[in-house]
Every structure is written in C-alpha cells, then in structure tokens.
Amino acid sequence: MTQAARPFGRWAVPRHPPRVHGGVDAAGPLPHDFSSNANAAGPLPSVAAAVRRADRTRYPDPQYHALRQVLAGWHRVAFERVLPVASGSAFIQQFTRAAAAWAGVRRVVLPVPGYGDYAAAARAEGLAACAYRRLAQAPPPQPGELWWITEPASPEGTTAAPLLGGWLHAAHAAGAIVVLDLAYEPLRLDRAAPGPVRTDATAWQLWSPNKACGLTGVRGAYAIAPPGAEDTAQALLRDAASWPLGADGVALLQAFGTPKAQAELAASREVLRAWRAGLASLLRGRGWAAGDADSVVPFFCARPAVPPDAAALRAHGVRLRDAASMGLPGAWRLSAQPPAAQRALADALAPADMEALR
C-alpha cells in the first residue's frame, strides 16, 4: 500500500518531542506559580470587567470592524493594517505557512534560547531553521528568510532595542521578512521602548496583551502589518478559520487599548518592579546566580548552586520553569510574584540550601 493510500490511523506522522510551557500542567494549578509570565499584579480591573460583560450569546463580527478601529486608533495605523488572530501561537503557525506558500520563504531564523513555537511552525512546513543567540551576533539577513525577533526576549528578558532601528533597515534592504514578537513589550519595566516598536515601517508586529492584562486564560492577539502589506493582512484574515476571536478575546483587546487600562498597567509595573527586586535578592541569598540585571521585564533567568527539588517545590505549592526546553539548560526562568509566593519559594528551597552548605 502506498503512503498516499494509507488509511486513517496509519499515517506517517512525524515524531517530535512535546512543547513545554509554563503555567498549569496535568497536575493542575499551584498557588505560587513562578513559571508563567502573566502579570502577577493583575488582572487589570477594567479589562477583567470588560471580559465579564462580553456577550457570549452571539458570534462576533467576523471582520472585527469595531475592534480593528480601536486598535488602529491606539497604534495610529491604518485600519487595514490590523489583523486580529486567535493567539500569538496561532499567528506564528499561520504566518509561517503563508510566508512559505505566498512569499517563497525557505528558511526561518529564530532566537535560541527562545519560544519553541517558532521552530515547531518551521518544522510543520518543512522549512530549514537557523538559530541565533543574540541579534548583535546574528548572520546577515538574506532574501527568502523569515526572521522572528522576540522583543523583549524570553526566557532571559533581554532587549535588543539599541540595535533594532539599523538592523531592521538592513533586513528590509536585504529582502528578509521580519516579525517582532512584542508579547512582553507592555510589561517592559526598564529602559525606554525602542523606536521601531512604535514607528517601524518594515517589520510585522505581533501583540499578545493577555499576559500584560494578567488574563492568560483569555486567548486573543493581533498583528500589525507594515505599510504596503495591507493586502497580505486582509488575505490572512480572509483565509483564517472563521471567527478566530471569540467574545472574550474581543473584549480583552478592545479594553486593553483604552487609557484606563494603560493607567492600570503602568501602576502594576511599579508593583512588579519591587517584586522582581525582592525575588532576585531572595535567590542570591540562596546561592543562585540571578540574571535580573540583564532583564527589562518582570522575569529573568537564574542558575542554582544545587538544582531545586521538584517534590519540595510542589509540596510548598511552588512551580518554576526549567529553561532547558527553551535552549538554556541549567537555568530556570522565574517571574516576579507577590511576597507570599516568595516566602513559599524560600521555604521550598531551604533543603537545597542545606545541601549546598555540605
């Protein structure tokens, strides 16, 4: 029997390791979750209220006219450049597929350490993948390449802001397609936002505000196409699954683009800044090497003298994110959490502290 004639259940399915994420796992939620990058000082009250008021009895407008008008006005871009998507991960898959089919992309260039969905989307389309560690040391962009830049980066929280303007100009001149994944831009705590994030006219922008809102259980994101790519944005919306955003996602995105939500977010950043400092101090006191000085967001990577005991962590209701699956073995990504969570973490690490002193 030829492969094309194989019955259902006997397909030649590729074997890849499962993707690892922070947050809830099969054992359920824990009260002190340092593994998720959701805004621990949230949820933003006005956004949460808007989600509660969402009308779930009707389909949203399939073209999302009102939502796109709000987002276009907030970003000061043309309505046609705004593309609502089901989630940041869904956009990564859809855009990679479209770049291969419509633009002839044959290679994806992605950050390592970084988000695993970039590589997964490239594999699904049979595209070659090339990794870079830091944008400053990355190879020159080439025609036929799709570049993913997470700004600020995860898992380490670093920023390439000083380089972005000149680098994006060079990438555009070379004919590369670039997407700035700005999932953590609203949570930037330190250093001014890079100009290209606000005004760049060459790269696509991907925004996933549910993290900043503290509502990661509500799925919804949007992309902003560069000028001249309006037709591509419209084609992506036309060819996506019908109603990629439900009523909850529409409500979250509409509320996020309001002055009230932005004021609430600014207040939460002040809280997160203090919590991040406390977390870094706690870890250093336990012999960890904390990378908070390199991070501009409420999370950073740290390396322990002795690997933390998973059973002890869970017994204290604590979850951390092992960064090995993101390409950084031996490191752990931790997000800023309230003082009660930090006390639980300190108690959970106490046995490892004793081991390190032996």
Rank of each mutant, 00 (worst) to 15 (best):
A240I: 07
A136R: 12
R284L: 07
A193G: 12
A90S: 08
R238T: 15
R81K: 11
W148F: 13
A27N: 08
V13E: 14
I224S: 05
G9Y: 05
S335M: 11
Y118K: 06
S87Y: 02
E80T: 15
T258E: 00
A100L: 06
F8T: 06
T2D: 14
R191F: 07
A27Y: 14
R188F: 03
D33A: 08
A344E: 02
E185A: 13
W74A: 11
A78H: 06
A223W: 03
P111E: 01
H169D: 08
P14H: 09
L110S: 07
E355R: 11
G22V: 04
P14D: 05
R6Q: 13
A86I: 07
E125C: 05
A98D: 12
A101R: 11
Q142H: 09
A312L: 06
L146F: 01
P227M: 00
A223I: 08
V47D: 00
G249K: 04
A128E: 11
R107C: 06
A49D: 15
G126P: 04
P60I: 03
V112E: 14
V13Y: 08
L265S: 00
A356L: 05
L334D: 03
L163T: 15
Q254V: 09
L163G: 09
M1F: 15
A99M: 14
L253T: 01
A170G: 11
H65Q: 13
P139E: 07
A350N: 08
A247N: 04
R321N: 10
G217S: 11
R107K: 15
Q262W: 06
R319W: 01
A54N: 05
P244T: 09
L313T: 05
V271N: 04
Q337L: 11
A12R: 15
H75L: 12
S36G: 09
L182Q: 03
P140C: 11
G144W: 03
G327Q: 04
A122C: 03
F34I: 14
A266G: 10
D200E: 04
D190C: 11
A90C: 10
Q93F: 14
V20T: 07
D190F: 14
P141A: 02
G291T: 11
E156S: 15
L357G: 12
L163C: 10
L146G: 00
G144H: 03
P339M: 08
A267Y: 05
W148E: 05
L252K: 01
P62A: 06
A277G: 09
Y184I: 14
V70K: 11
A128H: 09
G287P: 00
A277I: 10
A212N: 01
A267I: 09
P139T: 06
A233F: 01
A122T: 07
W243T: 10
G104F: 06
E270A: 13
P111V: 01
A50Y: 00
W74V: 10
E185T: 04
A356K: 10
